[in-house]
Design a protein around this nucleic acid. Structure first.
Lengths: 215, 215, 215, 215
DNA sequence: TATGAATGAGTATTCATTCAT
DNA sequence: TATGAATGAATACTCATTCAT
């Protein structure tokens, strides 16, 4: 066997491998798309593995070649959701000129994302909660998701530092905005905010005003 | 039969009735305690009717004598939780002299209650969510629970009005505090707040400071 | 103790006993009425003991003082139904002058009774079937109900004999009419007769015509 | 790969497919057999899904792979029963030369089938009744079963037309025979016919005699 | 006579997961 | 890589009946 042929073989192998990976990724993607659809239509409770498999045109058993467990599918869904979230936040922040408008832009993007995709919030809390127990991997996945989440909120911390805050203060500010928005969304989406005849957008606006008022 | 004996009989009857009621209430209480225990140990998902019955030393069927459905048990649990919450908030507010300290006291009591009883928060969100569908009066129960919740936060709105805010502003303030605390708790309890090296208590303190700063 | 007083006592006893029996019979009647209502509204499946008790304003357990079992209630219901049936048949026959019209009258009364009270037919078949197993008494009850049923159809046999048939032939004729009507009703009530675009009344009329045609 | 081998592969594929189908059909058949056994032993009431599964050597859940619901099992059982019925009727009719003997043959085959398989009658009435509600296509199934039933009785209508009856008359005749036989069977099988010391066979014979007597 | 409380057996159905093929 | 078949455990809830009071 000549060198050339070896190289060719390796190349073919590599290409074959790459193609395999690509095909696999595509299939995973199709399953996740199906999961997203089921999930959006039926909510967390209705998004059984069977339902997802059916929607994806698969047998339930087939999904186990692509994901370790149902939780793994959820986790992948959440990871992808966090990616979209980050894109939205980054996009919004990019258009803002001043640190203050960057904080506002990031906050509103964050709020808007979940207000328009309430199920993604569900997903987040489901997994960040008691889920993730069974299949061990939990730990790694958790930190990965955590990092993705932190990245999404980083623009707020960055802008806060640009405003003269210390790093600790900046982090606290990001956390504060994060918590406030999550609280508002939860109460809003469960209809509890109606009790106070309060609109979440107004409350958020006021919160940002107070937060950004010159001290 | 003399008048005296008649009176005694009536009294006995009444007492018998009262005892029956008391016994019933006690048994309901025991079941609810069992439910709380299971709930604390296994989380909402694991708190099946069977599990609750077993923990209470009953057969599943027996619970249906005391409660109409599983959701009814949850609802009772939540109602009782909201009662305790209100007691805590009212107790804290009673000790405060000025409107501002009353807001702070109420907010901290609210926060403290759920920080110490995280499962009660779960319960609230479970029921305030999609639950409550199948049996029971759903609707009635929902409004009753809503009212209990609103009552717990009323001290904040009252104090806000005492500070000179309009009724609408006062309501918004209660909603704002409510949302902020819920957000903080959720992130704290799911460990997300650690990402920002932020302590929920500090964040709440700062939020209240900003909120109560003279404009 | 004087004779008079003895008599009075006995009388009182009897009266007391009689009253007790009367009261008991009345209560049984009230329960049966309730059962009939539930039964008419919900059908056999829905007529649970609980439902009957509730409708009668009783606790399920209370019914066991008046009836041995659920089957016993059904049996009493059926007995009463058969009484009403007999009244209808007898009433119809009484108005007819000739043997042939008596056969017709009896048949139509029988048909009409069950066409208007389809649930009574259900009841009959339920009990005449596999039911009646548990509580032993089955045997006695069965023969009693059988006799009541036979009595209802006796007018047909009588009229047949009046037409010159032997006793055996007359019995066969009654059986024939009975079977034909039951068959028609069953198929009619389950909608199977529609398959043939046939009306049960016409079929019955023709059957009677053939049966009564001079040989 | 030569053409021959391709052909072989296709054949294997087809056979594989065919085998899969065959295996599936066989398993369904085994389950249905089990159901029939349970059904015969315990009656309709006792033929729970669990019992059927146990008898078939399956877990309850496994049955859901082969049938959509318990009602679907019943429906399949009935469909198969109607097939056997039709075979018997068709077979009997095929041997008869004249229209009149064809009517008689069909009627006796129909009668004989249910006299020997009383449970099939139960099944029919159960499903043709209120059943069929929950899952499954109910409607479709109902009409399919109706058609199967109608087909079984078609020979009678055909023969009636051959005798010179109009189509409507022929249909009525089929309905009449159907009703009479069902009535006889029901009374016979529940022991009610004994009341009249009447044998169902004699009554059917006489009914057919009258029906087929030249007018 | 009636109740309240409780039982135990039962119902059909759903779930995530596994494994031989 | 995917399927078909199967599992075992779980679900909430209903039933007729019993028994101490």
């Amino acid at each position: 066997m000549s060198e050339g042929s070896e190289a060719l073989e390796r190349q073919a192998e590599v290409r074959g491998h790459g193609r395999k990976q690509a095909v696999d990724a595509m299939k995973r993607g199709l399953i996740l798309d199906a999961a997203k659809r089921v999930f959006a239509a039926e909510g967390l409770e209705g998004a059984s593995l069977r339902a997802i498999a059916a929607e994806a045109g698969y047998t339930p058993a087939a999904l186990y070649f692509h994901f370790d467990s149902k939780e793994a599918i959820y986790a992948a869904l959440l990871a992808e959701s966090l990616d979209r979230l980050q894109d939205m936040v980054d996009g919004a922040v990019a258009k803002a000129r001043t640190p203050k408008t960057r904080v506002r832009a990031a906050a509103w993007a964050f709020y808007g994302f979940y207000a328009e995709n309430p199920h993604d919030l569900d997903l987040g809390f489901y997994l960040f909660r008691g889920g993730m127990k069974p299949k061990g991997v939990g730990r790694d996945r958790d930190t990965a998701l955590n990092e993705a989440l932190a990245r999404s909120l980083q623009p707020i911390a960055d802008a806060a530092q640009a405003l003269g805050h210390s790093e600790a203060e900046a982090r606290a500010m990001a956390a504060d905005v994060f918590a406030h928005i999550v609280g508002l969304l939860l109460l809003h989406l469960t209809g509890r905010l109606r009790l106070f005849a309060a609109a979440p957008e107004e409350l958020l606006e006021q919160h940002l005003d107070r937060l950004l008022a010159a001290p």
